[in-house]
């Protein structure tokens, strides 16, 4: 009996998940939310890569030469992914990258907390006194990671620029 019950629950959950993943509006809302968040978080990093490099250095994970290169690129990657999500261009790739970045950020914050580092996150602002890391940051990041993965596995691409051009192409062929 136990076996039958345990098979039914994942089936129900899977169906519900399938419905969620094919919901156009939910996907649009998540895209706009994550896109806006990544664009906002990228502004300070793009504007001041030096301060961002200092923020990454505080985590003491990489040698300085790597952190400055990372700081040069990461802000722009966040900006591009944010814009891609907002407009729905290369959305599969950007949702993949957003999830990957969030997973890496979460691991970095976790490792810093475990090592007892009392540092600022460097997530949204590069002000060294603001936005200290803590366990709430981990929960916050994991929730965002959930949204990123939801977008990655989402089956719908309605309301995206990609879909608009694809439909237009199909209309032209007809």
């Amino acid at each position: 009996m136990e076996g039958v019950g345990s098979r039914e629950i994942p089936f129900g959950a899977a169906t519900a998940m399938k419905h969620l993943l094919s919901n156009n509006y939910l996907s649009l809302l998540t895209r706009l939310f994550l896109g806006t968040l990544f664009v906002i978080s990228s502004i300070d990093k793009v504007a001041d890569p030096g301060a961002f490099a200092d923020s990454i250095n505080n985590y003491k994970l990489f040698p300085p030469i790597l952190t400055t290169s990372l700081a040069t690129v990461l802000g722009w990657l966040e900006l591009l992914c944010g814009v891609s999500l907002l407009f729905g261009i290369l959305s599969r790739g950007s949702s993949f990258l957003v999830s990957l970045m969030l997973a890496v950020f979460t691991l970095a914050v976790f490792s810093a907390l475990v090592r007892g580092l009392d540092i600022s996150c460097g997530c949204f602002t590069q002000d060294p006194a603001a936005d200290k890391i803590g366990w709430t940051k981990i929960v916050q990041n994991l929730s965002l990671l959930g949204l990123g993965l939801f977008l990655f596995f989402s089956d719908t691409n309605k309301f995206t620029v990609e879909a608009y051009f694809r439909n237009k192409q199909l209309d032209d062929v007809r």
Binding site: P49, G50, T72, V73, S84, G93
Partner: peptide, 24 residues
């Protein structure tokens, strides 16, 4: 798609930082 986004970010990042003499 991630590859192209990454390439674009590297290009834009280094060109912008070099032209504005920021960061590295």
């Amino acid at each position: 798609e991630a590859f192209w986004l990454g390439i674009a970010a590297v290009f834009l990042g280094f060109v912008y930082t070099a032209s504005t003499e920021k960061g590295v």
